[in-house]
Amino acid sequence: MPNDILSMVNESGGLNAKVFSLVRLKLLASLAALGPDGATYRELRAALDINDGVLFANLNVLKEMGYLASGKITSEGKELELYTITTEGQDEWKRTRTWLCRFLHCGA
């Protein structure tokens, strides 16, 4: 593990800076834990307490980056939108998480 802050900070070069917003980190972390099962739009909105506009916009950004996929499912006769994390999304989340852990440990 590098023992100086500069080399630690420079390790962030391989990360996607667009992931670093609280909402996107919350979404990636939540969906990474569910794997191929994913979560519906209404579950994400309720559990993460994010308003419609912000949630929809950020889900779309993550989809455009190839980190999330979405599709229609039917539950109890209702059509819902299901979001799942892609392999690229899992990889990016893993990289981000690893770097954050190292960074925060260093900061502490």
Binding site: L31, L34, A47
Partner: peptide, 16 residues
């Protein structure tokens, strides 16, 4: 507890 309420990621892995 996950965004879907009480949930077991290990079960998901085994189901797949």
């Amino acid at each position: 507890v996950y965004v879907r309420g009480p949930y077991s990621p290990d079960l998901t892995l085994d189901l797949y």
